Simulated assay, not measured.
Amino acid sequence: MSATPSLSSVVTTLRAAGCVFAEDEARLLVSAADSPAGLADMVSRRAAGQPLEHVVGWAEFHGLRIAVDSGVFVPRRRTEFLVRQATALIHQAPAGRPAVVVDLCCGSGALGAALLATAHQPVELYASDIDPSAVACARRNLAYGGTVLEGDLFDALPDDLRSRIDILLANVPYVPTEEVPLLPSEAREYEPLVALDGGADGLDVLRRVTARAPDWLAPGGHLLFETSERQAPGAVATVRADGLAPRVVTSEEWDATVVVAQLRGSRLGPVSLSPDPRGPAPVTP
């Protein structure tokens, strides 16, 4: 029987591998391991550069433990700010029916799971992703309250959702192609490229979403997506060009920039693009 690596030896190994939070990670690995051999394997994988979330099999997100399989995009903590903006809008759905929420590019399903946990009202949730590994993972995380579909953006959705979606979450990839090689090795080596690469300017997938979003949103419905501060002006212009009224919400604490775009009217009627007289939504930590 092999001896269990001590906490101090795990810390030493992780420090040598360049893990900044070696002590915290060591404690997590020790608590997650089911055997000495299992711990040794997990420490070896983490020291080799695998994301901690892939090694332990889950990520903490919005107070939840989200299953994250190897090769699946790891939900970022800053994206909790996007969930908070969506949760604040849920109550605007018409009374008498569940709010209809769709999470495109859902990855592990973290956004939908977090929204279900915090909405405090009935939600009809759909999530979709083009990556089969992500879909399998999301189905585990949303087994208690969502429908997970495999396909390319809106092509995965049932047709009867057209003009019914109250909240459309689209955490699309937005890293410009030439900047992907500059990402931390954990991302570029262990996460799927399709979840990172947003095209030449990082907005290619977003353009595909905004072009079709008005056909799927309910009147007054909202599209929400994360972007970078640098890309926000281009993202806002894209949203406006496709008939949605955008506002940008930022948080220094979360280092997050979110665009909230509303469908005012429909494809068949005029759309007001005037600024929201209420100004930006309040930023909550």
Score class of each variant (00 low, 15 high):
R15D: 04
A143H: 12
R65K: 14
E252C: 03
G109K: 07
L193T: 01
P233L: 13
V55Y: 04
V172D: 03
V260K: 05
R212D: 15
V283Q: 05
A187Y: 06
G18W: 04
G96C: 02
A127F: 10
C106F: 09
D34K: 04
L104W: 03
L183V: 05
E253G: 09
G221I: 06
H222Q: 09
L104V: 05
P132S: 13
R78K: 07
V20S: 13
R208C: 03
A86Q: 03
T147Q: 14
S133D: 14
V55L: 06
L149I: 12
L168P: 06
A235M: 09
R207I: 03
L263I: 11
H54M: 01
V10P: 05
A281P: 00
E80V: 03
A211I: 04
V271S: 15
L224F: 12
A261S: 12
L39S: 07
G279E: 13
V271E: 10
P98S: 00
Q121V: 00
P75G: 04
P233D: 13
R247G: 08
E252V: 07
L111Q: 08
S9P: 05
G220M: 14
V135S: 07
L104D: 02
S272H: 14
P233G: 12
A114V: 02
P5C: 05
L64M: 05
E179H: 15
T210A: 15
Q262I: 06
V83C: 04
E179A: 14
E124A: 13
Q92T: 15
P282G: 02
G202A: 09
S251M: 00
G96Y: 00
A67W: 13
V258R: 01
C105T: 01
A40K: 12
C19A: 04
E253V: 15
P122Y: 03
T12R: 14
P158D: 03
S133K: 10
A127Y: 10
E23Q: 11
L14D: 01
L157Y: 13
Q92I: 02
G151N: 05
L52T: 11
R230T: 05
V180S: 07
G221F: 04
G63M: 07
T238A: 15
S9W: 10
P282L: 02
E191V: 00
L161D: 12
E226T: 03
V236T: 13
Q121N: 00
A281E: 12
V194S: 15
L7Q: 11
N141W: 14
Q121W: 02
I90A: 14
W254A: 09
V148N: 10
A99H: 08
V56S: 08
R164D: 06
D215I: 02
F81T: 02
C137L: 08
L64F: 07
G57Y: 11
E226Q: 06
V68Y: 01
